[in-house]
Amino acid sequence: MAQSPTAAASLPKSRLRLSAYGERVAAYTILAAVFAWLVVNFLDNPQQFLSAAVFGISNGALYALIALGYSLVYGIIELINFAHGDLFMLGTLFSGFIITVVFGSKAMSAMGWVAFLVALVLVILFCASINMSIEFLAYRRLRHAPKLAPLITAVGMSFVLQFVGLKWNGSTQKSQPSVLPQGYIDLGGVRIYTSFLIVLAVTIPILGLMTWIVTKTRMGKAMRATAQDQDAARLMGVNVNRIISFTFGIGGALAGVAGLMYEQTVGTTRYDLGLQLGLIAFTAAVLGGIGSLPGAVLGGVLIGLIQGLNEGVRYGAGQRWTQSVVFSILILFMVFKPTGLMGVSMREKV
């Protein structure tokens, strides 16, 4: 019976709300701290700050390309494709192979541009077909398995691809010459590297193309239908296997483009590059809201910016802490805002 009406009043029924309030305070505090840090650094040395920011955004564009691959695949089969970063690493190796070995181009020239364009096409095909094969050989059989199984498989695939990279490129860092124009433009003390402009020139049209494919084409509509409900999509006549395969293809293509751009702008690569950059890119995808394509781009640029500033400004923690900074952001976001900046929340069905 209602024997303890007084005890009821004192029970911690508002615990949830309190912690939600605390979370909000914590989130705003962190945002305020970040903002203050930005302002202090900007005032300290505006040119340095802006140069670092531009450099960061250029990296961020590459992260965005990789993040899109994660986001696409996650959006459609809810799998964190751990092997995606390593696919990007293979993309860098393959691009280097085409440009430097096959074409023998070592500096900017007309031949270099031809090599660059051919490499762009080939690396897209190369990475797309690898990604599709992985899906076909491994993930497809595990589509109805417990969630842990495909995830562990993806981790395993990541190691297999790293092995390929290790055999291909050796265990040490190797650098390849770039065929892109070098140098920078000086805008009032702010350095804007030419490579940055080229990265943007390649990245932006590709992002536009992606958006067009996903929102306007039949294939894109089928993709979105499959992402929402595979069974329903199948009933509506969508070939789900083909759509998923196509999605992996697009993701792979983006990783390939990112690989080429990275190889041509940063230039150094190693078999474990994919692990590092892949995790950063995945963080970007989560930051933007996984499953959301504009979110992945936004997240990529933001992470690039954060990294650039962290490494480039006076009060930054420096390169040796980059990994920790990025992962701290990942953890903070996953804890406080798991839907990311542009994601939609999901509720489990009962």
Binding site: M1, A2, Q3, S4, P5, A7, A8, A9, L11, P12, K13, S14, R15, L16, R17
Partner: peptide
Amino acid sequence: VVLNGLDVTGMS
């Protein structure tokens, strides 16, 4: 929601 005289609204 009151269970057995106890307000359980918002509890886990």
